[in-house]
Write a protein that binds this DNA or RNA. Structure first.
Length: 702
DNA sequence: AAACTAAAGCTTTTT
DNA sequence: GCTTTAGTTT
């Protein structure tokens, strides 16, 4: 794409951001203001107009999805493949650097990556050994994570014991955890960033190499960076200062994961002469939606001042529906979805239902199912998170890295091989004695005397399977996986559904080598399915960030949910809830429907719920209140009064009697769609409700 | 070692 | 209320 065209499609602020290629740049990108467009066009501009080699531009995001989208759009703009470029998540970029250089700080370059599950198992086994109540592992793990996010290594903790306020017991667990990771030749997620920082800080010549390699740096969702990610970016950028960060403090909703909004202000201080550009024109939502959004966020304290505006016009009315309980609320939403669909302007895929906690999806999913709305719940367990996937991946991890004792433990008795807890404990004790990995210890046991024959037999059988697989580690990955199935008899010990999932794993492994496949499996949530099916999307407010939908429902606008009751006491957390609500509202393009219930079942008790305190910040004229009465009929009573122009005026309007060549006489229950493609719902006594297109159905009015 | 029962959880979660 | 996990039984 030519330079001219590249710049022409941008507004003046966006263009300023693209043209500011030298020195630090902070882009405050409001919701829907074309943030990704700026990043991708800036990349393309650097590469084409400024002749910067694309391989010298480092672009980091948080999610694989965002990285993929960025790559795709850059490919579209430059007409060249983005494969192999430095566009990726913080974690994948760090992993890529560490794969080449981590030996410089005393690790092996063929390290494996532990996901949260693996880390959790490791912490639990340490707690067991230390005789600490195992159920505490979650809290301990999250402490470890937050320390790592702040770049506090175990040795720093020990050196500074008092100042962090952690007890000695915890410090011992942390030290041990880190030792075990190293022994297993493994890094956890946070280590990826922490080790990259360590590498750069301890090896100036490595830092120098990458500083020269990355002449330009761009960072997306900057408000979500934690201390270690910011440090990493700063290390790489501080020399030339060609760093562009894009973010929105109003959309900071991951403080609980270590994100530091303060990094935005810190950036302006750390990089003097930072140019600040605000993107305030919103291309997504109607004015009514922005008004609501603004009234919510304007109350937020200590934010960078900005005000979104749009050229899209006022738009449809916004609704707030109060239902008696969560089932009624869900039914209301399901019926409104149905109505919107039947009116023809929106497909199911245009509609999202957002909520604060996953638990809310239950009632919603039930109502959708009853009403026959195709829907998809996002945010369950990912593709690679399923038990069967993790098992096979553990086999692969073990094949790639036999010293990975966490993976070994996971699959040593799966399928059952008579190697239970007692046997494992014996091997583990031995391993501690000779300070070797479980795999090496098992080999040691086979060569030693003084063990029972039955133990040796069991271990020998297992080791022979693993060694045979290791001997074939170079064959094509799908074949290797099939070989695991064959040698272990895994498929026979799982049900049909799981076996089918595993077939997908085989397919996903095609054209990949072992190493890169394992990185993919650890660092990717799973197949980020682009919803090809026409489905309503159900997801939490958190997972909706970065997405947009023509129609958005937000359920549970009640105190206790939005804001969540865990966040009500702490003013800072309350602010985050406000921003979360803001994020939800700003997902909507055309239509926004809020809802709440008067009573809701939370765990065991039926709670009386009050409307969200955030609603009182919205001027009452901004939305229409609806009381949901039970037993409203879906088709005959309109739940949402759609604008007149959407209503259909053809002769085949609701109530008309028609004759169909095959099904005989029926009654039109609803009609909708564009004038050149009108669709009707007809109830035929003989076959029931049918959805027909007037163009093809050959209906006769009688 | 597997199968069962009791008990304790229970916000969000990019990697 | 429901789901996960810890502990106990067979």
């Amino acid at each position: 794409m030519s330079k001219h065209v590249l710049l022409n499609v941008l507004n003046s602020q966006q263009r300023d951001a693209v043209l500011h290629t030298k020195g630090p740049l902070l882009v405050l990108a409001g919701a829907g203001s074309g943030k990704t467009k700026v990043i991708t066009h800036r990349f393309a501009y650097l590469a084409t107009a400024q002749k910067i080699p694309p391989s010298s531009i480092l672009a980091m995001t948080f999610t694989n999805k965002a990285a993929d989208e960025m790559k795709e759009r850059i490919e579209g703009l430059t007409g060249k493949s983005a494969a192999g470029l430095w566009i990726g998540t913080f974690h994948s970029v760090s992993a890529r650097i560490l794969r080449k250089k981590i030996d410089r700080i005393g690790f092996s370059n063929d390290f494996c990556i532990y996901d949260e599950n693996d880390s959790g198992n490791l912490v639990r086994s340490i707690l067991k050994e230390f005789k600490i109540h195992e159920a505490l592992y979650k809290g301990i793990l999250s402490k470890i994570y937050s320390l790592k996010a702040s770049l506090v290594a175990p040795e720093d903790l020990l050196a500074n014991e008092d100042s962090y306020g952690f007890d000695e017991k915890f410090a011992r667990v942390y030290v041990r955890y880190q030792d075990e990771l190293k022994k297993n030749n493994a890094l956890d997620f946070d280590d990826l960033i922490m080790c990259a920082v360590k590498l750069f800080e301890q090896c100036p010549e490595v830092l120098q190499k990458y500083r020269e390699e990355f002449s330009h740096i761009m960072i997306d969702e900057f408000q979500d960076t934690n201390a270690s990610q910011y440090r990493l970016s700063k290390l790489l950028a501080s020399k030339h200062g060609n760093i562009c960060v894009v973010g929105d403090d109003d959309q900071s909703i991951y403080k609980f994961r270590g994100a530091e909004v303060r990094n935005i202000r810190a950036f302006m201080e750390d990089f003097s002469k930072t140019k600040v550009i605000s993107l305030e024109q919103n291309y997504r939502s109607t004015q009514r939606i922005l008004d609501i959004a603004d009234s919510i966020i304007a109350r937020s304290s200590d934010r960078m001042p900005k005000k979104l505006w749009t050229e899209r016009g006022k738009g449809d009315k916004i609704y707030y529906c109060v239902a008696t309980n969560e089932q009624e609320e869900a039914r209301y939403i399901a019926q409104a979805v149905k109505e919107l669909y039947l009116k023809g302007k929106y497909s199911y895929r245009d509609i999202a239902v957002l909520y604060r906690v996953n638990q809310q999806s239950r009632a919603l999913e039930e109502a959708m199912r009853e009403n026959g709305q195709p829907h998809r719940i996002f945010g369950g367990i990912g593709f690679y998170q399923r038990k069967e996937m993790k098992d096979i991946i553990s086999y692969l991890k073990l094949i790639a890295n036999p010293d990975d004792s966490v993976s070994l433990k996971r699959i040593v008795n799966c399928p059952p091989r008579q190697i239970g807890a007692a046997t494992i404990t014996r091997v583990e004790n031995e391993a501690r004695k000779i300070d070797k990995s479980l795999y090496k210890t098992m080999k040691h046991i086979l060569k030693s005397h003084g063990y029972t024959a039955s133990l040796k037999d069991k271990v020998s059988l297992f080791i022979s399977i693993i060694d045979e697989l290791i001997a074939h580690r170079e064959i094509k990955l799908p074949e290797l996986i099939e070989m695991i199935f064959e040698k272990t008899g895994y498929l026979e010990c799982v049900g049909e559904e799981r076996a089918n999932n595993l077939k997908e794993l085989v397919i996903a492994s095609e054209a990949k080598d072992l190493r890169s496949f394992l990185d993919t499996a650890s660092l990717f949530n799973g197949l980020d399915e682009n919803n090809a099916d026409d489905c309503v999307s159900l997801m939490t407010l958190h997972s909706a960030k970065g997405l947009e939908f023509p129609v958005v429902f937000i359920a549970g606008i009640e105190d206790g949910l939005v804001p969540h009751f865990h966040a009500i006491k702490d003013p800072e957390e309350l602010e985050e809830e406000r921003r979360l609500f803001y994020v939800g509202v700003t997902r909507a393009q055309d239509m926004l429907v809020l809802s709440g219930a008067k009573r809701r079942r939370l765990y065991t008790s039926l709670q009386e719920q009050q409307p969200s305190r955030f609603l009182s910040d919205i001027p009452s004229g901004c939305y229409h209140c609806i009381e949901k009465r039970p037993r409203a009929d879906a088709i005959t009573s309109s739940i949402i009064n759609l604008p007149i122009d959407l209503l259909n005026t053809s002769p085949f309007a609701a109530g008309a009697r028609v004759r169909h060549p095959k099904w005989g006489i029926g009654v039109v229950r609803d009609s909708y769609g564009e004038t050149d493609d009108v669709k009707v719902m007809v109830n035929f006594p003989s076959v029931g409700m049918k959805r027909l297109s007037l163009k093809f159905a050959n209906l006769e009015k009688i």
